[in-house]
């Protein structure tokens, strides 16, 4: 498979609390603890999970906005973690990010024109006049007017700002965009407009998306494949329709059962998880989900289940689905 992006064994442990001058950090938060994922050109991979499960961190590790502690990231066949800083800068042209917060992610002191042109300036693309033309095109493409370039971000609504963020991400014609909860801060009525814009752009330019979200309805609309994360690990990965039709991991089942389905005749039995997400500083032994899993056995406490292929393009990490010693 010629993946656009292939990440293997991503690990990020954050020190818990600030180390003092003379002491070492005592604990680590295992935010991301061995994540593999791949994205094909033109494909949308969704990362879903509860808040704090490490999905945003994973997105940032892939872009090396946060430095991974371990793992390899192959982007278009090149190992991002081995590229020297200058080459990494070049590679950044092809991978961009859209942020969750449409208010914080645009510099309030800059005009929209300067914000959208910044990627071009940083990479030395074009003359001032050419850049202005490109900014006008980009603004038009995302549904704003070229005249908006002279305004400041505070003059725009949340949805419009997110369009500005999208225009900035598109400026360098990237191949992969990490979308970190791109619509979760927007009104529901605006969400669909922005999502449709993103789908149109994907079709038009063959963009690969890593779509990070906790909103399963949105994910269902956007994704080709879905990876479900729990406490820093992927517990199940499958094509969208397979996952929604027949979730296999108990956590995925519980997540899906929480999605309201309007107009659905079938009465769903809701699987209610008890307890809180355990701390990522001291995750449970064996399977991380066992403390909240209705089917947990003694094996789950002893052995950590590996993400195992169970069908074509489908991976599950659960002893119930693939009993230990089975593979």
């Amino acid at each position: 498979m010629s993946a656009l992006l292939q990440a293997t064994g991503l690990v990020k442990h954050f020190p818990a609390g600030k180390p003092g001058l003379f002491e070492r950090a005592p604990q680590v938060v295992r935010a991301v603890d061995g994540v593999d994922l791949s994205v094909a050109p033109g494909e949308t991979l969704a990362l879903v999970g509860e808040s704090g499960c490490g999905k945003s961190t994973t997105g940032r590790l892939i872009l090396r906005l946060i430095e991974p502690d371990a793992g390899t990231i192959l982007f278009q066949g090149r190992d991002l973690r081995r590229e020297p800083p200058a080459r990494l800068r070049e590679l950044r042209r092809d991978m961009q990010i859209i942020f969750q917060d449409p208010f914080g992610s645009l510099d309030p002191r800059m005009t929209v024109g300067r914000i959208v042109a910044e990627p071009l300036v940083v990479h030395g693309v074009g003359t001032t006049a050419e850049r202005a033309r490109r900014v006008a095109q980009l603004l038009e493409r995302v549904g704003l007017a070229p005249a908006h370039a002279a305004r400041h971000p505070h003059e725009f609504s949340g949805g419009q700002r997110q369009r500005i963020g999208i225009a900035r991400a598109l400026a360098l014609d990237p191949k992969l965009i990490v979308c970190d909860e791109p619509v979760s801060a927007l009104d529901v009525s605006i969400q669909a407009q922005v999502l449709n814009l993103m789908l149109d752009l994907q079709r038009e330019r063959g963009l690969g998306y890593i779509f990070i979200s906790h909103n399963l309805a949105v994910v269902r609309y956007m994704a080709n494949r879905i990876a479900v994360m729990y406490l820093g690990k992927i517990v199940e990965e499958a094509a969208r329709d397979d996952l929604f039709a027949a979730p296999q991991h108990p956590y995925t089942k519980a997540l899906l059962s929480a999605v309201p389905e309007p107009g659905s005749a079938r009465a769903k039995q809701r699987i209610v998880l008890t307890g809180d997400v355990p701390s990522a500083i001291d995750p449970p032994s064996g399977c991380r989900f066992r403390t909240r899993c209705p089917h947990a056995t003694e094996t789950c406490a002893r052995l950590e289940p590996a993400l195992t292929p169970v069908a074509d393009g489908r991976n599950v990490a659960c002893h119930l689905v693939t009993p230990p010693g089975h593979a």
């Binding site: 906005l65 914080g104 940083v122």
Partner: peptide
Amino acid sequence: PYVEAARAVGAGHMRILLT
């Protein structure tokens, strides 16, 4: 977030500090 956005775009430390 806009500082992170600038880093994602490839801006160097000097540019981020000054602009």
